[in-house]
């Protein structure tokens, strides 16, 4: 696989990133943010992978053969990061609901237009 795996992850990341900065719709922005973050998680997990390794859960040793475990630390970090990501999403969505209440729109340019006029 070489570096191909990383490159695909990067492409995903950039698709997410583009959605975040280019989209006008607030919900779409949040979806983009999600894609962006999940792709970063993939980057982490990819680097923890060892070819022919197994998941880092202890297996009963078979005679003469020692299991190769993938690196557990990235998994630990990403478990934390996933939760952080969802927390951010939840907060963002709550804000969107409030914005919708206050402005009646979830399109960023419309909202900014209203602010300029008021």
């Amino acid at each position: 696989m070489g570096l191909f795996n990383y490159w695909t992850v990067i492409v995903l990341m950039m698709v997410g990133f583009y959605t975040v900065i280019a989209r006008n719709n607030l919900i779409k922005t949040m979806i983009g943010l999600g894609i962006f973050q999940v792709s970063v998680f993939m980057l982490y997990i990819s680097m923890g992978k060892i070819a022919d390794g197994t998941a880092p859960i202890r297996v009963q040793p078979s005679a003469g053969h020692e299991a190769i475990y993938s690196n557990p630390l990235p998994h630990v970090l990403i478990l934390t990061a996933i939760v952080v990501g969802v927390a951010t999403t939840a907060l963002g969505l709550a804000l969107i609901i409030r914005i919708r209440e206050a402005y009646g729109s979830i399109e960023e340019d419309e909202i900014l237009e209203m602010d300029r006029n008021s």
Partner: peptide, 18 residues
């Protein structure tokens, strides 16, 4: 406007932390 400002900050801030 605070809501919009907070949302913009949230997006920018999350990009930053990512």
């Amino acid at each position: 406007r605070a809501l919009v400002a907070a949302f913009q900050y949230l997006v920018m801030g999350t990009i930053g932390s990512t």
